[in-house]
Computed example of a mutant assay.
Amino acid sequence: MNLKKWGTLGLATTVILGSLLIGGHLSGASEKKIYIHDDQLRQELVRAASYDPETGEKIVIEDELPTAKQLETVESFSFWEASSIDGIQYAKNMKYLVFGASTSEEGKQVAVDFRPLGKLTNLEMLQCYSYWTEDETTYSVQDISYVKNLTKLTSLDFYHFPVLDLTPVSNLNELIWFDTNTGVPVEIDSVAVSGTEKKVVMEHPVKYSVQFNDGDKSATGTARNENEEYSADISVQMDGNKLTIENIPAEATYIELELQATSKDYYSREQMAEKHFRANTTVKVPLFWY
């Protein structure tokens, strides 16, 4: 009888202690202090998390170290000129995000790693700006594979963003608005040109998402000389994923391609269409003559 009693008490004690440990673990995770490396991003996130969402009262966040729980209250956010966006992934309930990746501050590194965005799986709207600077990093082609995780997105914009592979967007079934443009030419690998044929056959440099499958695609080209001056308009024929460029003048050192794609039911925002998908890409193709 006594053994049974002590056994029952022991089991009850184990359950209670286990519950306390689990609760303490979960509480500890939500109370974890988050250090955000970039000064600008840290200040803006701390400001956004400094209000109680239920009462609207201001919360004091000491030493600019918000907890994970405090960052989870941020649903709408915008920021500019960050050298890193690491830390934003803790604002996991965010629904609307607008940010500019580049910086006007001389000597400050620009953000190049946007993978933390892939953790914001509750996002419904994302607008990314990457204004070009003297820092060559802002000219680097960006990998947007992280967007495939953002399946709740209905609106996605990449402005002045050097993106050539749009296929991760194919995973976004809720998307009704997608607009992207490179802003200025993105340089790709050089292509060889025969001095006799003055012709190039190359693969289309942009990989489109499924949203453009039944839409319209076009390609135009301009030849430019070593001084980046206009040389001539050239013929660009598109056959599936193949581009054929002919009548390239001998003085041309590179070709500037304007590549456009729109969805079948494309309309402007002002026309309030049900869906809008557009991609404008400018590519610089250096020429190697032989």
Rank of each mutant, 00 (worst) to 15 (best):
S209Q: 02
L20D: 03
I234K: 00
D157R: 01
Q70M: 08
G87P: 02
D63Q: 13
M202V: 06
E134Y: 11
T73A: 13
N173V: 09
E72C: 07
E226I: 04
N93F: 03
R278V: 10
E81M: 08
S83A: 11
S231K: 01
R47L: 12
N213Y: 13
V112L: 11
K198W: 06
L164Y: 02
Q271N: 12
S102R: 00
K207L: 13
T220M: 07
K217A: 11
E62S: 11
L150M: 02
L175M: 05
V210D: 13
Q271W: 09
E81R: 09
E105L: 09
S140H: 14
D157S: 12
N122H: 13
Q271A: 15
E81C: 07
L243M: 05
Y35H: 15
Y290P: 12
T244W: 05
Y267Q: 15
D239Y: 03
E226T: 08
E72A: 14
H160C: 11
G118V: 03
E246Y: 04
I85L: 09
S145Q: 02
Q211E: 12
D63R: 10
T253R: 04
D189Y: 02
R47D: 11
S76W: 04
L150V: 01
A273N: 10
L175S: 02
K152F: 06
K69F: 08
G87N: 02
I144H: 00
Y139C: 07
I144V: 14
P249M: 06
E187Y: 03
I234M: 05
S140M: 09
E44K: 10
T182N: 06
I255W: 00
I176D: 15
